[in-house]
Design a protein around this nucleic acid. Structure first.
Lengths: 111, 111
DNA sequence: AACAAATATCGTAATAATGCGATAAAACGA
DNA sequence: TCGTTTTATCGCATTATTACGATATTTGTT
């Protein structure tokens, strides 16, 4: 008990939930917004930008990387992170595939 | 330690993260897809549809309701849940506001 | 009123997520 | 090589999430 029953759901449902989980923390949202605003970015900026400890930010960056939303390159002594454009576009399509499924309500059918 | 530092982030970032958290479980994704597919819906359908216990589904429905994504009406002895269309639309706009922020990469700027 | 059906809530156990200090690892310059 | 800077990982404490049986609540029926 206490463990998510991924086996009960479709691959798409699990994938959607996993991506949503990557968005489900304000620090990660802030990181993504920062990367979106400045195409070029190094991790050090984030430590001074957000009020969290370096270890915490590194952990959030790892999760975003695991989700495929960002990618990192070694830039000399520091690290350069940016959005993964292909993944970003596919995620937008996945989410809009969900959002667009809503249909007009017939009066009486809806609550 | 161990508690999310919501005070460090903007209201928009916290709101975005909270909504994403509502999507961040395959059972809730499945529930939303079911509600999107059938405009009319009662809770009992979901218990037989998904493989989870009644108490668990009721809990997920509560979270979706708290997030404002769905709304429930008493329908005789049972309960009728459906998507909240206004909220749904505003969430789509919020997410696309994020997704659309990506800009074309100048070669050399990106990693 | 008594019963049945459908949901919600409670209590509890297990797992996941969050935050951060300490430390390791990697890359550059003197 | 040694020291500096930057990032990643480890270990731990704390809080949040998930699941479900048991029970309470609500509504309609007889």
């Amino acid at each position: 008990m206490g463990v998510t029953r991924s086996d009960l759901f479709t691959q798409e449902q699990n994938e959607f939930a996993t991506l949503a989980k990557a968005f489900a923390h304000p620090a990660r949202v802030a990181i993504l917004q920062y990367l979106l605003a400045s195409n070029k970015c190094i991790n050090g900026d984030l430590v001074s930008e957000l009020g969290l400890a370096q270890a915490t930010i590194s952990q959030h960056l790892k999760e975003l990387k695991n989700a495929g939303l960002i990618q990192g390159n070694i830039e000399g002594v520091s690290m350069s992170y940016c959005i993964n454009p292909e993944k970003w576009e596919s995620v937008q399509k996945l989410f809009n595939g969900m959002f667009d499924k809503i249909q007009a309500c017939e009066p009486g059918d809806c609550c």
